[in-house]
Design a protein around this nucleic acid. Sequence first.
DNA 1: TTAATTGCAAAAGTTTTGCACTGGC
DNA 2: GCCAGTGCAAAACTTTTGCAATTAA
Lengths: 139, 139
Amino acid sequence: METAELEKKIRERNGRMTRVRKAMLDFFGTAETPLTATSILELLAKRRITANRTTIYRELRFLEDTGVIHEVRIIGHGRSFELSGGHRHHLVCLGCHDVKSVAFKNHLDSEEERLLRDERFRVSDHSLEFYGLCDKCSE
Amino acid sequence: METAELEKKIRERNGRMTRVRKAMLDFFGTAETPLTATSILELLAKRRITANRTTIYRELRFLEDTGVIHEVRIIGHGRSFELSGGHRHHLVCLGCHDVKSVAFKNHLDSEEERLLRDERFRVSDHSLEFYGLCDKCSE
DNA sequence: TTAATTGCAAAAGTTTTGCACTGGC
DNA sequence: GCCAGTGCAAAACTTTTGCAATTAA
């Protein structure tokens, strides 16, 4: 999503461009991995920006409600979020515990059609995580 | 997994067949949805079995270390677990919040090969969740 | 100005740990 | 009897809520 588009979405919700919000949008825009409340606090600290943990949680909820970010759940990690659009697939290294978001088209459309037919389940979204070893951790 | 096979795995780890463990194996064996510590406590209560929450967490860890169960992470739900082998795919209804485990073969092998080639990521496992509306909640 | 945002304190929920006691085999 | 399993209390984390103070527009 473009920065301009993000700002537009936020304005629509009567959102203001505050110090913390701006920094968080920046973090989400550049991160290659989903972010947790705690990791966001650490990133803020590096930039010498002080913010209360409560503010981060409230901001995460706001950005999620606004559709700017979405939640990601990965085994062995805390509740995390990433920018909406495109992503939703992750490579989770069981060695160094790093998580990399990868954007790629996959062929789950036929699977989703099958679920609608056989299970009468109407898929609107999906998430896919691969667990294994990254290049560095493969020895 | 067969009950006999489960018991064997547990014996190998010097595990004993206790009241709580037996009940939990039964729950996991029959549940069609992943179970959380809290839902297990509720199931135990229905059977008039009293157990401390700490015991449940310790048992979950034991069964996970033993390879009997594995963790499942689903958006909007607490940390949950299900019996290992086969499953790993879930239909998550955004209406009633029910989660159904479904076993099916999928065609991610070529995707995993691609990840090894392009990303040098050695996949050992994956998890796939579909979010949407179940039959009842589709109106 | 004025409504959104924030900080702080407190509460609620989840998960882990230490230690002494109990119970399966 | 031995050692795995358990309960209890307490601690460590994570997330939410209420309220008063602050600030972007």
